[in-house]
Design a protein around this nucleic acid. Structure first.
Lengths: 109, 109
DNA sequence: GGGAAATATGCGAATCTTCGCATATACTAA
DNA sequence: TTAGTATATGCGAAGATTCGCATATTTCCC
């Protein structure tokens, strides 16, 4: 794999490597939202959300659309959902396996 | 989405958010490798690779198998490849769109 | 047991991240 | 223009990451 691809992947992963940013991307599933709306929904400081959006924007994960006074953010590429959904499946599988291991351990007592 | 899932996703993404760790996971596609082999292939310090492996291990992305003197690492869940592959597709689509935009910009000159 | 090889860990320096607060900027409406 | 709302940015402190080097630990072999 070329270095450039690794670098790109790492940057995207890193951008997604924060709970608040995951939450932002998730909130945008049903369509664009303003910064204020995001801050409300996530109970976070406006400046904090704005900073996280700046990171997502820099990686082109999210794009701004200015309407009058406000800025609507939306996820640029719907494929991003697929990545999150795949990660959810991964999570469920991991949890399932952990449960199985716990059950097996219990039986051994 | 529950907070726990967000937290989990963020932790996995963050673990993948470094070029060296992407490279490690990629090198393991064809099977387990020892720490030394990884350090060789990636031209990195042994301790550095070991530290990155510790991070991947903590997130259960990678599992160690001790054989005599050495430790073979392998990726725990093959679904991890799917996530990386999806990210590659995402990359290719993004690059494609950037190229298109460049072309369009060129035509306007 | 003693020495060598493979891996993990401790440490400190440099860098990066994250947050809240204050403030700048952009736009609206009167 | 002035006041008000929405968003972005600057700043500094606290904490996290990353790296190389030195060293501890484990295992092997003689």
């Amino acid at each position: 794999m070329p270095d450039s691809l690794r670098q790109f992947k790492a940057e995207i992963f890193q951008a997604l490597g924060h709970p608040t940013r995951i939450a932002i991307v998730d909130e945008l599933r049903d369509g664009a939202l303003t910064v204020g709306a995001l801050a409300d929904r996530l109970s976070a400081e406006q400046s904090n959300i704005s900073q996280h959006l700046a990171i997502l924007r820099a990686r082109q994960i999210v794009i701004p659309r200015k309407v009058a006074n406000q800025v609507y953010y939306s996820v640029r590429d719907p494929q991003m959902w697929k990545i999150l959904d795949l990660m959810r499946k991964y999570f469920e599988k991991q949890v399932g396996e952990s449960m199985t291991m716990l059950e097996e351990a219990k039986e051994k007592v």
